[in-house]
Amino acid sequence: MSKYYLNYLDELESEAIFILREVWAQFDNPVILFSGGKDSILVTHLAKKAFYPAKIPFPLMHVDTGHNFPETIQFRDDIIKDLGVQLIVGSVQESIDDGRVAEEKGKNATRNALQITTLLDAIESNKIDCAIGGGRRDEEKARAKERFFSHRDDFGQWDPKNQRPELWNIFNGKHFEGEHFRAFPISNWTEMDVWNYIKRENIAIPSLYFAHEREVVWRQDSWIPNSEFLILEDHEEIVTKKIRFRTLGDITITGGIESDADTLEKIADEVSGMRQTERGNRSDDKRSESAMEDRKRQGYF
């Protein structure tokens, strides 16, 4: 006699597959926003399941800041080859060269906010009507209010006070010319759920998530990797540490944590004992109390 109920990971998986199929059915030209981080890798894995035995029926899109970990780009190219899907790249460097955006100045300069323009340009020029992201509601307080199907006006902006109500499992992706949607199939997953699922399914992720030796510098309470973009202050010193990354963003802003976790089991164990949120190591979120909400309103991921 079977039990006829799902465990929590199977239920989250089924929900995400349902959302991905709704996106495919309701939009003409969706893409998966692929950053090479674990959340977008997870969404891609779920999309594989949603459309099996067919291929994922839409492209992956990468907003390339030029400040990448080389490992991430390698991983991205491998996964594209494996899935046999198209890759669209939006380049922040091109946006800078075209004069669409200006590079930030100073030691803590990042290309994080610059991505918004590149992302919206890529959405417009490729006529994308739905960009599927790996955002989760547990990540950040502005994201806790995000819908599964989230409307963006023709300037790409989010209006959090005027969102469409979402009831039961009925999703409304209707939109006018020029507007688009963001869809978040893993809204209900927590960081721990993501790791437990990656472990269970044995999903390949970039080596950066596993403990490894790396040249780093201590800045803003975490280990920032040495790279060609790093500008050292007088008092700062480059050291070699065994670290791993809990989230992946630009090499300039992603801080690592000291760790010996070099397998998925050890990572899941380590994460379950963590007392800091994962975005605590991201300097892009430390700028102000509403840093995420402000960027999201403008069209950020």
Partner: peptide, 26 residues
């Protein structure tokens, strides 16, 4: 508290989703 307006007014306007897990359930 979630959005800027909610923090300023000290009220919940929209549905917010929260997550927690115990050894028995999510």
């Amino acid at each position: 508290d979630g959005l800027k307006d909610e923090r300023e007014q000290g009220i919940t306007i929209d549905v917010a989703y929260r997550y927690f897990t115990t050894p028995k359930r999510k």
